[in-house]
Amino acid sequence: KRAIQKIANDDQKSILEDAKKQGVNKGVIRAITDAQKLRRKSEALAERAENKIDGLEEDDREFAVDIRQALGDDFASFGLGAAAVSREDADDDEEDGGQQD
Score class of each variant (00 low, 15 high):
26 K>H: 01
10 D>V: 08
80 L>E: 15
50 E>D: 11
94 E>Y: 01
4 I>M: 10
10 D>S: 11
80 L>F: 11
48 R>K: 08
92 D>M: 05
26 K>C: 00
1 K>V: 12
27 G>M: 12
42 S>Y: 09
31 A>N: 07
65 V>F: 09
29 I>V: 15
88 E>T: 12
84 A>I: 15
76 A>I: 07
81 G>L: 06
24 V>S: 02
16 L>N: 13
25 N>C: 01
68 R>I: 10
10 D>R: 14
11 D>Y: 04
54 D>W: 05
25 N>F: 00
28 V>R: 07
94 E>T: 02
9 N>I: 11
8 A>T: 11
23 G>F: 06
64 A>Y: 03
46 A>T: 09
23 G>Q: 01
54 D>V: 05
41 K>W: 01
47 E>I: 08
8 A>V: 09
21 K>A: 12
52 K>G: 07
32 I>H: 07
59 D>L: 12
69 Q>D: 11
13 K>G: 05
89 D>I: 03
10 D>A: 15
83 A>K: 15
69 Q>A: 09
83 A>C: 08
93 D>M: 02
27 G>Y: 06
54 D>Y: 06
19 A>Q: 03
83 A>D: 11
1 K>G: 12
23 G>V: 03
2 R>D: 10
18 D>Y: 09
46 A>I: 05
51 N>R: 14
100 Q>T: 11
24 V>K: 07
81 G>V: 03
96 D>L: 08
26 K>E: 15
77 S>Q: 14
85 V>W: 01
49 A>C: 05
78 F>V: 10
74 D>W: 02
70 A>H: 13
17 E>W: 07
86 S>V: 03
75 F>N: 03
98 G>F: 03
37 K>M: 05
20 K>R: 15
57 E>Y: 12
76 A>R: 07
89 D>W: 00
74 D>K: 13
70 A>L: 11
97 G>W: 07
62 E>R: 14
84 A>R: 07
71 L>A: 14
74 D>E: 12
33 T>P: 01
23 G>A: 05
41 K>H: 09
1 K>T: 13
45 L>P: 00
20 K>E: 10
3 A>H: 08
41 K>N: 10
78 F>T: 15
84 A>N: 06
36 Q>C: 04
70 A>Q: 09
32 I>R: 14
19 A>L: 15
17 E>K: 11
31 A>H: 10
42 S>G: 05
18 D>F: 06
21 K>M: 05
41 K>E: 10
91 D>Q: 05
72 G>K: 10
71 L>D: 07
26 K>P: 02
81 G>P: 09
80 L>H: 12
13 K>F: 07
73 D>E: 09
82 A>G: 15
47 E>Q: 13
40 R>V: 03
19 A>D: 02
91 D>V: 02
54 D>T: 12
76 A>Y: 08
88 E>C: 00
6 K>W: 01
100 Q>C: 00
34 D>L: 12
62 E>G: 03
30 R>H: 10
9 N>Y: 03
73 D>S: 14
30 R>M: 10
40 R>P: 00
19 A>H: 03
88 E>A: 14
49 A>Y: 04
59 D>R: 15
60 D>V: 04
96 D>T: 04
30 R>C: 00
24 V>G: 02
39 R>A: 11
42 S>W: 02
55 G>C: 06
6 K>I: 13
61 R>A: 10
82 A>C: 08
